[in-house]
Amino acid sequence: MVVTSGLAGPAAADAPATPVAASCSADRPVHTVLPTRAPLVDWSENLGVDGAGNLWVSRVYRNAVEKYDSNGQLVTSVPVTSPGAVRLGPDGLLYVTFGNSPFTGLTSQGGVVRFDPAASTPQPEVFISGLGQANGAAFDGDGNLYVADTSANSVERIRPDGSIDAAWTDSARTALSANGSGADGVVVAGRTLYVTLLESQTARVVALPIDDPARATVAVDLSPATLTPPLLPDDLAIGADGLLYIATGTGQLVRADPAAHTSCVLLSGEPLTSVVLSPTDNSVLILGTEFGDVLKTHITY
């Protein structure tokens, strides 16, 4: 999510709107992994981990993706325009969405770059261009890359050769439009793609079957439509328990069960942008923030 100022039909209507429970954990400690150097300027839009276990942070307002080692030391900075998601590809390269801004969405200047994370000076190359506000991203088991276009409220399916699966993408766009707006975070679990709708009145997460996106359903509504302001679901991850862990722009880390359509708040604090599992301990979640800090917290499975 980037702030500048401030299935279809029947399945969406029949899904239960489940308010967020008050809490599913009391006094959960949160630790700062990387303190912000300049509040907001350091906005940590997204997080990724490479094959060697290094943490990569998208600094959307710095137009850079930064690599940190296990000691929290900044190793290198790769220039990327308004970067979003950072995802390790099946080929060992890092794929980063770029053009994550509303203006880019209007001018179709978004896309994806890729580079070798092990290089001493990584050289990003364009994997695909001509997208809108390229934001969240995830790979499936077949090597297809899914990119959320927030401005178009769509998810683009990009084949391993860099071409767009237009039929799949059109079907997904129609299904998402029936459920809300602001497609933002995406994550793959088996043959299902979960998509957060940042601008939904109920903070909705949609389940898109990879094999038939037209049969989309509501995975969970994180908050009732009467909640003002609503939660702002941003990036998300799959835990070792198979549940969804969702960062919200209103400052909550939410755990959701898409099968039971239920959710609860793990912690509340500064506005969150992203979440990733620690490469060394899947009971640790690393969190990106709008303020620029990178945080961590432990969860119990």
Rank of each mutant, 00 (worst) to 15 (best):
L231W: 09
P258L: 00
P122Y: 09
L243F: 10
G136Q: 02
D212I: 04
P224N: 06
D293P: 09
I286K: 00
V218N: 14
R59F: 08
A137D: 00
H261C: 04
V30W: 00
N71M: 13
V78K: 03
L231M: 11
A21C: 09
G242A: 09
V86A: 10
S77K: 02
L266K: 02
A225G: 05
L232P: 11
S23I: 08
V75F: 01
S177V: 06
A225Y: 00
W56V: 04
P230N: 08
P213Y: 04
R255S: 10
L176C: 01
T81D: 12
P233W: 14
S23C: 09
V275D: 11
G185Y: 13
A64H: 01
G141W: 05
P124H: 13
A259I: 15
G92V: 02
V57A: 03
G185L: 13
L145Q: 01
T250E: 15
P230M: 05
K296G: 00
T202R: 15
V205W: 10
G239W: 09
L295M: 07
T76C: 14
D14N: 15
Y301R: 11
L193V: 10
N144T: 08
T150Y: 08
L55Y: 03
T18I: 08
L74K: 08
P83W: 04
R159M: 06
R28E: 09
S163C: 02
V3C: 07
E199P: 02
T202I: 13
V218S: 15
S23Y: 03
